[in-house]
Simulated scan of single mutants.
Amino acid sequence: MKPWVAVAAAVPLATGCAVSEPPRTPAAEPPPPSSTQARDAGGALDRPRAARPPAVPPGTTAGYVVFDRVSGKIVAHRNARRKFRSASVVKILIALDLLNRTKTLSAEDARLLKVMLRSSDDDAATNLWNRGGKGAIVTRMARELRLRETTPPPASKPGFWGYVSLSAYDVVTTYRHLLDRADPRARDLVLGHLRKATRCGTDGFDQSFGIPAAVPRPWAVKQGWSGFGLTPPVRCGGDVSAGGGAISQVAFAASGTGVPDYGRPVLHTTGLVGKDERYAVALLTAHPAGGSWNASVKRVTTLARDLYRALP
């Protein structure tokens, strides 16, 4: 995704049916299982097992949560409630909010949702963000899904949907809502697109890092990236980009009050993995200021691989 989002004129959208009531969020998280607690709870994945949770490289901040739908428990977590800059992960909430308020999608809105969710298109997200009331989208969805750390961007940056704050715990709660509580229409549309996520984002960045690179199919994913400039080092599809992917500081020129990890690039991989989508996974990361896209992608993919191998 781009490190900034332009503001367009807001257009009101007709109201529609609401999705069903979300699950109650538990007050406390269970501790991660010890190696002796790891067991086959049914539908286990065939993979080598890691002896310990993944090691986070120096200078990188990671927050992750993995929920096992077979055992009904969180089986791995780190910095579960820490706030991160959302980048494109917020596009799931933008989509859910639109579907809540719209009984019948127009052909154009159906197209916008498809390209936004499958290929992380920023222009589509900006269109729906402005029409839905910008930060009001986040307020509505956080209230409905009971997302504790998910908050709108600062008042000084209302058009910057990538500056929404969220946590790994809240992202996993959103996936659980989609699977277990959402109106079937919303569930099938959103997850249907995430199951068909493209390798290339429409901005030319390769979004097959993290889960897609480290975990065998089946999976449904929503990726996020911010702070890596407008030009990838190699445009997805093989064309070398002019400028070599140097990090742009456009997003960080003004005060970053209220924006998590302001001045640091972020890279997120989230989704559903395993047979029958057994695991809901959110891995959110912030990287050293000035860090490259390629090095950050390598770190996130390694973390996703090690986290997956450590699952029961």
Rank of each mutant, 00 (worst) to 15 (best):
W4E: 10
V7M: 10
A8L: 05
A10P: 03
A14I: 13
V19S: 14
T25W: 08
P26F: 14
P32A: 15
P33A: 13
G43M: 07
G43C: 14
L45Y: 13
R49D: 13
A51K: 08
V56E: 07
P58L: 12
G59W: 04
T61Q: 11
G63Y: 02
F67Y: 11
I74N: 02
I74K: 04
V75T: 09
V75K: 05
A76V: 02
R81M: 09
R85K: 09
S86Y: 00
S88P: 03
S88C: 05
K91D: 03
I92L: 02
I94F: 11
I94V: 12
L98R: 01
L98E: 00
S106M: 10
E108N: 12
A110Y: 05
L112M: 14
L113H: 01
K114A: 13
V115C: 06
R118G: 03
S119R: 15
T126I: 08
L128I: 10
N130S: 12
N130T: 09
G132L: 08
G133F: 03
A136F: 02
T139Q: 10
R140P: 04
L145D: 02
R146V: 14
L147R: 01
T150Q: 03
T151H: 08
P154R: 04
W161N: 03
G162R: 04
S167N: 04
D170V: 04
T174Q: 04
L179C: 11
R181M: 11
P184M: 05
R185I: 04
R187W: 01
D188H: 12
H193F: 13
K196E: 13
C200R: 09
D203S: 15
D206L: 01
S208T: 01
I211F: 11
I211H: 08
A214H: 01
V215C: 03
V215W: 00
R217T: 08
P218M: 12
V221K: 00
K222E: 08
G227L: 01
T231I: 15
T231K: 15
V234M: 14
C236N: 06
G237I: 14
V240L: 15
G244T: 15
I247S: 14
S248V: 13
V250R: 14
A254C: 07
A254L: 09
T257E: 13
G258C: 11
D261P: 00
R264Y: 14
L267P: 01
L267M: 10
H268C: 09
T269C: 06
D276L: 12
L283P: 01
L284P: 00
T285D: 03
T285E: 01
A286D: 02
H287Q: 06
P288L: 06
G290L: 07
S296M: 06
V297E: 07
T302N: 14
L303K: 05
R305Q: 09
D306M: 09
R309A: 12
